[in-house]
Amino acid sequence: MKDVIILAIESSCDETACAIVKNGNEILADKVASQIDVHTLYGGVVPEVASRIHIENISIIIKETLKEADMTVEEVDAIAFTQGPGLIGSLHIGVLAAKTLAWAYNKPLIPVHHLTGHIYANAFVKELKFPLLALIVSGGHTELVLMKEDYDFEVIGETLDDAIGEAYDKVGRVLNLPYPGGPKIDKLAKEGKPIYKLPTPKVESPLDFSFSGLKSAVMQAINRLKRNNEELSIEDMCASFQKTALSFLWKKVEIALDNYEVKQLVLAGGVAANSQLRKIVEEKMKTDYPDIDYIIPPLKYCTDNAAMIGASAYIAYKKGIRATYDIGAKATLDF
C-alpha cells in the first residue's frame, strides 16, 4: 500500500505543535513550542496569553517541522488539525493554519479530536489491539474510553467535576508549589509517606470520577494540623494526596477491566507521565491482569504534541473522514 504522510497541527492549550507522520506510526518530524515558562509565571494557563503566543509561533513551527523532515507541503498527503476540545482562542490559530494550508496546496483536511490523539500516541509504541480500554488522564480530562474497533470511541466513565490534573494543580496551589503542580507533587511524594488520612471521593456510578473534594480534604487536613500545632510535612501530604487520588483512579480501571472484555489497556494524557501512576499500571497489569496487554506511552508523547494528532489522523484518513473549509474550532467536542 502507498505510504500516507500527514502534516498535523496541534494548538488546543499551551503548546503550539506541528509534526509530519508517516502511516500513523513513524515520525518524520515533530516540533513543539511550549509556553510552560510563561504560564508558570502566572500560576496557570491564561487563555488570552496562550492565544497571543500561538500566533507568534504558528508559522515558524510549521516551517521548522517541514525543514526537519526535509519536505515541502506539496509532498504530504493531507493536513490534520486538532478541532477541539480545548481553549477556543488557541484552537482557532491551529485550525486556521491548517485550513489555509489545505486550501493553498489543495490537500485533504482532517479534523482530529484532541483526546483521540492522546489515545493514538500509543501507536508509536506498538500496534493497538481491540477491544481496547483507554484511561485518559490530563489537566482537562479524566475519562475511560472503550474502543471496540479502530476509531470507535465510547466513553464509559468520566469525571463529574475536576479532571485529575486539575486536582493536582489545585492541591499544588494549596501547598504553595509552583505551577504546574502535577510533576512537583509526584516528585515530593517520593520523599514522603502517605500518613495523612484523606477521604476517598464518592460517586454514584461505579465508573465515574470525582476529584474536586480532594482539594478541600487537603485544606481541611492542613487546618487540622494547624489547630493541633502539628507541623505539616509537604512531602507526606503529597504522598497522601497522590495515593488517595491514584488508588481511586485505579479502582475505576479495575471495575472497567472486570466488566468489559478488552485485549489491551492504554494510558493517555499528560498525567500519564506521573511516575507513580505508571508504576501502578505496570505492576497491577502484570499481577492482576496478565492476559491483558497494556501500553504506557513514552513521556514525550504524554504531553500535548502534534505527532499524536498525525497518528490519529492517519486512521481518520483511511476511514474517509474529511473536513470542509468552513469547519470551526470547538471548545467542547464529543468523540
Binding site: 488570552e48 504558528i58 508559522s59 510549521i62 517541514l66 482557532h92 486556521l96 493553498a104
Partner: peptide, 19 residues
C-alpha cells in the same frame, strides 16, 4: 477584537511564511 485580528493574521502569516 483580539480573536478577530488573529484570524486574518493567521491566514496571512501562513500564506506569507509557508506559501
Amino acid at each position: 477584537s483580539y480573536t478577530g485580528v488573529r484570524i486574518g493574521l493567521t491566514v496571512a502569516k501562513i500564506l506569507g511564511s509557508i506559501v
